[in-house]
Simulated assay, not measured.
Amino acid sequence: MILRETEHKSIVGWVRESCKGSPLMLGRKGLWPESRLQKLDRPGLWIKRDDELSFTLSGPKYRKFAGLSQAMKASDHVVSWGSARSAFLLGLSQMAKEEGRSLELILLRSTPYQDFGADILYQNAFAAHSQHWLSREDWPTAAFLANRIAEGRGRTLILPEGGVSPKALAGPMSLALDLTEQSLALGLDFREIWVDSGSGFTAQALILALGTILKNPPLIHVVLCAGKDDDFRQGLALRLEEAKNELALDWRAAPFECHKASIGASYGSTPKAVWQKIAKEHQEKGLLLDPIYTAKLMLTFEAHRAAHGESPGETLLIHSGGSLNNFGFEKGLIVYEG
């Protein structure tokens, strides 16, 4: 692993400044959120434990909110929109309370909440903030409504759905810096990295950061748990322009491939094989995957290996977290029986 020193130093400074003063960094020695690497029981296979950063915030959300610290501090009010079960809005509700910011939520009216599990947490968290509900028919007006709400409010931070914003870009790039430091310290040189994708924001940030700071970046395998290949590539092109606007560097994309999830390809689909995989990994390895993202990541990785064989060199799987998703289904978690 060989660094492009100038680019690495510049991105380190940008991410460090973005995360400075975040309550998520209080008491931490590092300059950005850090999670450990775990060696798995296959030769050359490792997993990045971003799931251990937080329970209610997945790893990508934790990094995103840490990097939003300066934008939050420059605002008194926050407006954002998303589904009634948005993990980003759940985290934002938590952070707004912790940082003493008023929050207006624009929520998509869809399937009614259930009276058990994670739905109780969404209802409870959102009840502490102002809510505006839109039908699916009116949902395209959410951004317009957010801007209208912000008018006359003074210092207001508007965060698009999922927090996909240039203001949040530095946070997810901390994953690449964290991983690079650990790899150098342990003498590892990952040639392939597997990461899941919902909005695509974290995977796109990883592709750009590793492509820019490394002279010979690894191949990034992106498992699309939502969206299509074309959507991801368009998002990556947009992230590239946003990164150039934030930091004048020779930004480059690492090589990558997009894969449709091998099982449960439709977003939110949770076939029996997904729950079996969660139970098996938890029982045999002590890893708690989730049914929306990480179980599908693992299944797709294994299907790819079965079809194409073991890859040379070391491989890393990013465990993004999302454990809370396990508790949003009346019939979901099972005991693995072999």
Results as ranks from 00 to 15, higher is better:
R4S: 05
G13F: 05
V15A: 14
E17W: 02
S22F: 13
P23W: 12
L24N: 07
S35P: 09
R36H: 06
R36S: 00
L37W: 02
L37Y: 00
Q38Y: 02
P43I: 03
R49E: 02
D50E: 15
S58K: 11
A66Y: 11
H77W: 12
S83P: 10
A84F: 05
Q94E: 15
A96Y: 09
A96V: 14
S102K: 13
L103D: 10
L108K: 15
Q114A: 14
G117P: 09
I120Q: 11
L121F: 06
Q123A: 13
E137L: 11
R148N: 07
A150M: 06
E151W: 14
R153H: 04
R153M: 11
T156W: 15
T156L: 11
I158W: 13
L159K: 04
E161F: 03
S165H: 11
A168I: 02
P172C: 05
M173L: 01
A176V: 03
D178M: 10
D178L: 03
L186I: 05
G187M: 04
S197P: 06
L208C: 00
I220L: 07
L224R: 12
G227S: 08
D230N: 03
Q234R: 09
C258K: 03
S262G: 04
G264I: 03
G264A: 05
A273I: 02
K285A: 01
P291Q: 03
I292F: 12
L297K: 07
L297Y: 05
M298A: 13
M298P: 08
T300S: 14
E302F: 04
E302Q: 03
R305D: 04
A306E: 15
H308V: 01
G313A: 10
G313I: 14
L316S: 02
I318V: 14
H319K: 08
G322N: 13
K331T: 01
G332W: 01
